[in-house]
């Protein structure tokens, strides 16, 4: 394994984030108190998910331009690991909201947008599973993937800012950077984002390899005439 360094980096960063995330110094703020540590997990997970979805869209575009089935494998597996992160992000946010806003699922535009976003991508998985032919599935779900990303960004990042939301950066609340993001948080938060992105890439990479090995084996079986 020549390219193992980034996996080691990923493990190191994740451990650093977990340890520093729970025992590192954080600013004291009213109401939020210690639960500000959730920034390292919840916010970072969402950012990692958006990055993975963006990469997935890039690979879908590449598939449509070049028609190489490997690009579609990469795109779909990136989308799957992004959905996994999205569900984790929802869960961590929900636990946090339970203690800070007093309700595990407050009626907030950003939360509803997130739920809709996850529904869009679950529909993507459903669409993938409803085709038999590989090339056809790849082309049509790539089209849907690009379309979905273009709708996903307004739902999560633009529409909630137009209305009142409990999340920072919308409805008169200021964004993170302006008041409570001191250097202690930055030192853990940015590595956290990178660490989660690397972890997502790792998960996707393993699944892509399994997929490609399966494809090669199937072809070998067909060629040997046992099918």
């Amino acid at each position: 394994m020549r390219k193992i360094w980034w996996k080691i980096l990923c493990v190191v960063i994740i451990f650093y984030v977990i340890i520093m995330g729970f025992i590192g110094p954080v600013p004291r703020l009213a109401i939020i108190n210690e639960s500000i540590r959730n920034t390292y997990f919840h916010v970072a997970l969402w950012l990692a998910m958006t990055t993975l979805l963006f990469l997935s869209m890039i690979f879908s575009i590449r598939y449509l331009m070049k028609g190489n089935i490997k690009d579609d494998d990469i795109g779909s597996e990136l989308a799957k690991s992004a959905i996994f992160f999205g569900i984790l992000g929802c869960l961590t946010g929900s636990v946090w909201a339970n203690y800070t806003w007093g309700d595990p699922w407050p009626n907030d535009p950003k939360l509803n947008g997130a739920a809709v976003g996850i529904l869009i991508y679950l529909a993507y998985l459903l669409l993938r599973s409803s085709f038999e032919d590989e090339q056809r599935r790849a082309r049509i779900s790539s089209v849907y993937n690009i379309f979905a990303f273009a709708v996903f960004i307004p739902i999560i990042y633009i529409l909630p800012r137009l209305t009142d939301s409990l999340h920072p950066g919308s409805g008169g609340n200021s964004t993170f950077g302006s008041y409570d993001f001191d250097n202690n948080i930055r030192r853990v938060f940015y590595p956290a984002v990178i660490g989660y992105i690397l972890l997502g890439l790792w998960i996707a990479e393993l699944r892509i390899r399994i997929k490609q090995i399966n494809r090669v084996r199937e072809e070998a079986l067909i060629e040997s005439g046992r099918l």
Binding site: V116, L119, F147
Partner: peptide, 17 residues
């Protein structure tokens, strides 16, 4: 193949905003 179901599943989340 099952386009009627798929139509509903694909379109509702996208049309919601």
């Amino acid at each position: 193949d099952n386009s009627a179901t798929l139509m509903a599943v694909l379109s509702f989340p996208i049309i919601l905003p």
